[in-house]
Each structure stands twice: as structure tokens, then as C-alpha cells.
Simulated assay, not measured.
Amino acid sequence: MTTEVSGAGPGGASGAGNEPGSGEAPGSGTRLVKGPGLLLLWLYGVMSVGAVSRSAYQIATEFDRAPLAYALSGVAALVYAFITYTLARGGQTARKVALACCAAELAGVLIVGTWTLVAPSAFPDATVWSDYGMGYLFIPVLLPVTGILWLRGGATRR
């Protein structure tokens, strides 16, 4: 079992995973939210709030108008929230889970984005991932790519 972002190490010291006495080897990449990772965490947090707010409102008030679109927005919101959680949690298990979720998110954006272009009648209203995230300045397609690069880079830095 590895030490997560914070906690007491073998010497009783408490602190981030890469600090002396934390039980992790220096440079092990336990902290996911340092440097550019902090910006990534912030962006996922903002997308979580936006997607959860939008989908909750749409599902609660207009679900019968575009059930597929609103359900997919709800799925996107859950994915963003879960990735935000795993990035904030840190640790090698969280890194692996976040990497898998970013890959699933990218697949979702590509599938839904293509679907909205091929069969626009299936989407009477936009989702977070419609047109590859055009309504969100293409952040939904850029964010998982950035996340994958960051998370994979951390694994090679170890």
C-alpha cells in the first residue's frame, strides 16, 4: 500500500507524498497537483461545476425535451467530478484511475462529438461534448488530452 498525498510516514512525519519521511521515494510522482497539474485540477474543477450545474438544471426542468443530450451531459458531469477527485487525492492508484478516466472522457467526447455532427436530429439540445465541446471553447476535447499527457509524463518522471 502506498502513502497518498498526505499522511504520516514511517518516521511519523506528516506531509505530501514526495517529502522526506512520507514513505514515498523522492520523485515518485505521488502528488498530482504540483506545477501544471494544479492548473489541470483547477480546470477539471471548473468543468465539474459547470457541467453539474447545467445538467442538473436541464434534467430537473427540461428532461423530456432532449433526454439523450441531458443524460449525456450528466455523464460528462460525473466524469469531470470523478477526475477532479482523483487528481486532488493523489497517489499512484489515483494516477492510474485518472488516466483511465481521461481516456474514457476523450472517447466520450470523440463519440458524442461525431454523433452530433452525423445525426444532429438525435440532439435537439447541445451536450457538454456536442461538436467536440465547441460550446465550451473545445475545452472538453483538449482537457483529456492534456490530462493524459500530464499523467503519463508523471509516470515516466518516476
Score class of each variant (00 low, 15 high):
72 L>K: 03
50 G>L: 15
57 Y>M: 08
75 V>N: 03
93 T>I: 11
48 S>T: 15
98 A>P: 09
74 G>W: 06
59 I>H: 02
66 A>F: 03
94 A>P: 09
86 T>K: 13
57 Y>V: 09
90 G>R: 10
107 A>I: 14
51 A>M: 08
73 S>T: 10
89 R>Y: 03
93 T>L: 13
110 L>R: 12
83 I>M: 04
108 G>M: 10
45 G>Q: 12
47 M>Q: 13
89 R>P: 00
111 I>E: 02
93 T>M: 04
82 F>D: 02
83 I>T: 12
70 Y>V: 06
65 R>E: 10
113 G>Y: 07
99 L>N: 08
53 S>K: 02
113 G>C: 12
99 L>R: 13
113 G>T: 13
83 I>C: 05
47 M>T: 12
107 A>E: 03
80 Y>F: 14
51 A>R: 04
72 L>M: 11
112 V>W: 05
80 Y>G: 01
87 L>E: 00
51 A>I: 05
52 V>I: 15
110 L>I: 14
58 Q>C: 01
97 V>R: 13
60 A>E: 01
86 T>W: 08
57 Y>Q: 01
56 A>S: 15
105 E>H: 15
111 I>C: 07
77 A>G: 14
60 A>R: 09
73 S>H: 02
49 V>W: 11
105 E>G: 15
98 A>R: 11
81 A>V: 14
68 L>W: 06
55 S>V: 05
92 Q>I: 04
90 G>Y: 04
60 A>M: 03
51 A>T: 14
87 L>H: 04
87 L>P: 05
104 A>D: 01
71 A>P: 00
109 V>H: 05
65 R>I: 13
51 A>E: 09
88 A>H: 13
46 V>N: 02
90 G>T: 08
60 A>Y: 03
65 R>W: 00
58 Q>N: 14
58 Q>Y: 05
85 Y>K: 10
55 S>W: 02
113 G>Q: 10
102 C>T: 11
73 S>W: 01
114 T>W: 11
101 C>W: 11
89 R>E: 07
79 V>H: 00
53 S>D: 06
65 R>N: 02
68 L>G: 09
107 A>K: 08
83 I>S: 03
